[in-house]
């Protein structure tokens, strides 16, 4: 069950659109739900569908189309590394390799303690800052050379 706070936030999103276009808030609603619940379970998807008056499969289409939504549980820290060409030219792939080695997991895997999930990302629109990675979808980390990766992992408790 989503909290009252989550519904209040969703209401604010709904208000951005014309009254008969509640569905427009679905992306924001799913993001809000995921931030609160950690991932999007079947129940959460149904709850969002019901709240916005959408068929559940329409919500599922959205949740499975945009790759920042997690349809399975992830670790406390989800680290998404961009390995696209501009980043790769500046070490994006090597940064990912470094993280794999440090965490002992591959892409789409979670560390045994449930703390970290590693994901491969596509362009985040910050190619000048390569290597770039995103923590829990909200915090973008730039110029992630090994020392900065070490520091980031150290910060994550």
């Amino acid at each position: 069950m989503l909290s009252q706070d989550a519904f209040r936030k969703i209401d604010r999103e709904i208000a951005k659109y014309p009254a008969e276009q509640k569905q427009s808030a679905v992306m924001a609603a799913l993001a809000i739900a995921q931030m609160e619940q950690g991932w999007l379970s079947t129940e959460t998807l149904e709850e969002v569908a019901c709240y916005l008056g959408m068929p559940p499969v329409a919500v599922y289409e959205v949740a499975s189309f945009y790759n920042m939504y997690d349809l399975a549980p992830v670790g406390k820290y989800k680290i998404t590394v961009c390995t696209n060409l501009p980043c790769a030219l500046s070490g994006g792939v090597h940064a990912a390799d470094y993280l794999k080695q440090k965490l002992g997991v591959g892409f789409n895997e979670t560390t045994a303690d449930g703390k970290f999930t590693l994901k491969e990302g596509e362009c985040m629109g910050a190619c000048g800052d390569a290597p770039v990675l995103l923590v829990n979808n909200v915090r973008m980390c730039s110029f992630m050379q090994p020392a900065r990766i070490d520091a980031l992992l150290g910060e994550c408790e």
Binding site: L45, E46, P55, V57, A58, V59, Y60, E61, S64, F65
Partner: peptide, 14 residues
């Protein structure tokens, strides 16, 4: 619906 995208797209119910 058609869930997922690209080559991974699948027709499915909820």
């Amino acid at each position: 619906g058609q869930a997922f995208r690209g080559e991974h797209a699948e027709i499915m119910p909820f």
